[in-house]
């Protein structure tokens, strides 16, 4: 999919806030129908990047091109191709769901029967048909989230940009949101999705860009990214006591590649970590740290992020 003509092309995006560099030379592209995830911790530059993509911010340097239309030169034409779902609920609470959707639809030039049909279809997609005539301020948080997404996809954009749409959502609504996005992806809509939830990126995205401190540090499919870490497992040891000494001791164990201290314990990576477990526990005992639990984790994007940045996604 990455070889298809790009629907979205971001090159060298840079954004400063005073002396702070929020985004530092971010480049990536998304093909039609592709789901692309920007994975990174809070403050990594995801929202700033997305804001430049949707035309909300002008980049200090670099360019956003949507279906061949430069955002900086012809924003109105470029924006028609994009549906934006902001991180916070951006709806009118004193209007009903249908009124909200009709309003946003009209902004995108929809009208008449076409608009009415789109509203019903979109309400159905997010499971709100029965509550469509209720004011939004009577909705639960999850329902508002779903309507927030509906407002972004009503005009059937070529690219749907979602900025951490599941933050603060209960598990049931979260699953419902992810299913709706998967459905859009299957229907051929390209998706740019930011999250700091590794499992969401793994579930939804064809390709993932790992972003940290305003830079994309790695990019690829899940398989490609995991391969960067090698076929190594991660052992998560929760422990109390002198974890610094614990980490030092564990580094001396044969087969251990890397030990990362974190609050409440350490993370160990190594080939076939399960076989290392006895040695690791023996070393832990020697360090006099009190081990609470030990968990062996298969390689995932969290491991990749840890490997690339030396810190956990939710630090």
């Amino acid at each position: 999919m990455a070889n298809a003509p790009a629907l979205l092309e971001c090159s060298g995006l840079r954004k400063n806030y005073g002396a702070v560099v929020a985004v530092d030379g971010v480049s990536f592209s998304i093909a039609p129908g592709e789901s692309y995830g920007l994975l990174g911790p809070n403050g990594a530059g995801k929202t700033t990047t997305i804001s430049m993509v949707v035309g909300l911010f002008d980049p200090d340097a670099g360019e956003v091109v949507v279906q061949g239309v430069p955002m900086g030169r012809d924003p109105t034409r470029a924006k028609v191709q994009i549906g934006y779902v902001p991180q916070d609920i951006a709806l009118y609470p004193d209007l009903t769901a249908r009124e909200n959707l009709v309003f946003f639809g009209r902004l995108y030039g929809l009208g008449g029967d076409e608009l009415g049909g789109r509203v019903e279809e979109t309400l159905g997609l997010v499971g709100l048909v029965d509550r469509g005539d209720d004011r939004v301020d009577t909705y639960s948080g999850g329902m508002k989230r779903r309507l927030n997404i509906a407002a972004g996809m009503l005009h059937r954009p070529s690219l749907l940009v979602l900025d951490e749409p599941t933050v603060g959502v209960d598990p049931q609504s979260r699953n419902s949101i992810l299913e709706a996005i998967e459905q859009l992806g299957r229907a051929g809509m390209a998706v740019l999705y930011t999250t700091h939830y590794m499992e969401e990126a793994e579930r939804l995205c064809d390709r993932v860009g790992i972003i940290d401190e305003g830079r994309i540090v790695a990019e690829g499919t899940r398989r490609e990214l995991v391969a960067m870490v090698g076929e190594r497992d991660r052992v998560r040891i929760d422990a109390s006591g002198d974890t610094v000494k614990l980490a030092r001791t564990l580094r001396k164990v044969t087969g251990v590649d890397e030990v990362t201290e974190r609050e409440g314990g350490v993370d160990v990576t190594g080939v076939e970590a399960r076989r290392l477990l006895p040695a690791l526990l023996e070393a832990a005992q020697k360090s006099r740290a009190q081990v609470g639990s030990v968990e062996v984790l298969e390689p995932d994007l969290e491991s990749v992020f840890l490997h690339l940045t030396g810190k956990a996604l939710r630090d």
Partner: peptide, 14 residues
Amino acid sequence: DDGTLARLLTAPIR
């Protein structure tokens, strides 16, 4: 403040 202005500004209007 409510975030709807950002949404308006990402629509294809000036």
